[in-house]
Simulated assay, not measured.
Amino acid sequence: MADAYFFLFFLLPLLLLVVLYFLVKPRPVKIPIKNRHVFITGGSSGIGLSLAHRAAAEGARVSILARSLGKLEEARNAIRLVTGIEVAVFAADVRDFEAVKRAVDEAGPIDVLLLNHGVFVALELEKMELSEIKFTMDVNLMGTLNLIKAALPAMKNRKDPLPASIALVSSQAGQAGIYGYVAYSASKFGLRGLAEALQQEVIADNIHVSLIFPPDTDTPGLAEENRRKPELTKIIAASSGCMTAEKVAQKALDGIKSGSFIVSCNLEGIALSLATAGLSPQRSFLMAFVEVVAAGILRIVALGMQWTWYGSIEKYHSQRKGKCCTKGY
């Protein structure tokens, strides 16, 4: 019996760790930020502005892009006031490839492309206008493709031999579909497929892709989102909590520097990432070990989460029907 326990709890895990050490690809990498060009979209407020502050403070040459030149100037002044560092600003709509290309060319070769832009409309699909759906997809998905396509040639031909990075800010709604997030989740799930395929295309050029999954974040946009957010969406999304933009930026930049493909920002995010690891790249053999060992348990946890969510949906609709019947009576 003792031999069986020794094999099960020591030799088998040790053997698995050895196998995973040689199995995981791409291999671990460190991506330096200091004295390198970090280009951040959606950089005039929220997570993007916090990322710009942190990158500048760590000695990076920072460029930020957003639609509003006025907000960009305010962001530049705020960063200068705190860090004493001047950042470059570029006004462009990410949906416009030619405008994006001009901004990227003017900014110069990019070492870290941080795609943080995004729009969000929380509403049931039936109630959304087609224009809102198209706007969400064009900004969140096509805008990301526009930036990558514009920046990639120079990133591939850079003279700097150090590893480069392309980081995409997704959302926990890009890991699990949530009531009221049909268009938003579709655009954010799309980023995952983009990132997984892109990593295979650029790995030979020493470019490393990161996919960041923040929860609800306390930004100027969140208050606006909450005005239209369906009640059921608030109930379900509340389980993941809310983070400050500064904390998300810290987690994101740390993940980028460590070359992580999946970057989670809180405990719920780590659980979601483990549960949805699938065919995503994993550089750390230790994290790969956790993914393998925890897979079955996390599937049970995921089923429990679905049970809770669908329970909330059933309860909500039952209460609404009850109120309707009372009014009818």
Results as ranks from 00 to 15, higher is better:
residue 1 M to D: 03
residue 7 F to H: 09
residue 10 F to D: 00
residue 17 L to I: 07
residue 20 L to W: 14
residue 21 Y to T: 15
residue 22 F to I: 07
residue 23 L to F: 12
residue 30 K to V: 05
residue 30 K to P: 01
residue 39 F to Q: 04
residue 43 G to P: 07
residue 43 G to E: 11
residue 47 I to Y: 08
residue 48 G to T: 15
residue 49 L to G: 07
residue 58 E to F: 05
residue 59 G to E: 05
residue 63 S to T: 13
residue 64 I to R: 05
residue 69 L to D: 09
residue 70 G to F: 03
residue 72 L to N: 14
residue 74 E to L: 14
residue 74 E to H: 07
residue 75 A to D: 11
residue 81 L to H: 08
residue 85 I to A: 14
residue 86 E to I: 00
residue 90 F to N: 01
residue 92 A to W: 02
residue 94 V to I: 12
residue 96 D to M: 08
residue 101 K to L: 02
residue 108 G to A: 09
residue 109 P to R: 11
residue 113 L to T: 03
residue 125 L to V: 07
residue 130 L to R: 07
residue 144 T to M: 13
residue 157 N to Y: 02
residue 158 R to Y: 03
residue 162 L to D: 06
residue 166 I to C: 13
residue 169 V to E: 13
residue 173 A to V: 11
residue 174 G to M: 09
residue 175 Q to S: 14
residue 175 Q to G: 10
residue 176 A to W: 14
residue 177 G to D: 09
residue 189 F to I: 04
residue 190 G to S: 08
residue 194 L to V: 08
residue 198 L to G: 08
residue 208 H to L: 12
residue 208 H to A: 12
residue 211 L to V: 09
residue 213 F to D: 09
residue 214 P to M: 11
residue 217 T to H: 10
residue 221 G to V: 10
residue 227 R to N: 06
residue 231 E to H: 03
residue 237 A to M: 10
residue 237 A to G: 07
residue 240 S to N: 11
residue 259 G to I: 05
residue 260 S to D: 13
residue 266 N to D: 14
residue 268 E to R: 04
residue 268 E to W: 09
residue 270 I to S: 01
residue 274 L to R: 03
residue 275 A to F: 03
residue 275 A to H: 03
residue 276 T to C: 15
residue 276 T to V: 05
residue 277 A to L: 15
residue 284 S to R: 07
residue 285 F to K: 06
residue 287 M to S: 10
residue 290 V to I: 11
residue 291 E to G: 01
residue 293 V to Q: 01
residue 297 I to K: 02
residue 302 A to Y: 13
residue 304 G to H: 00
residue 307 W to F: 10
residue 310 Y to F: 09
residue 316 Y to P: 01
residue 317 H to K: 07
residue 325 C to F: 02
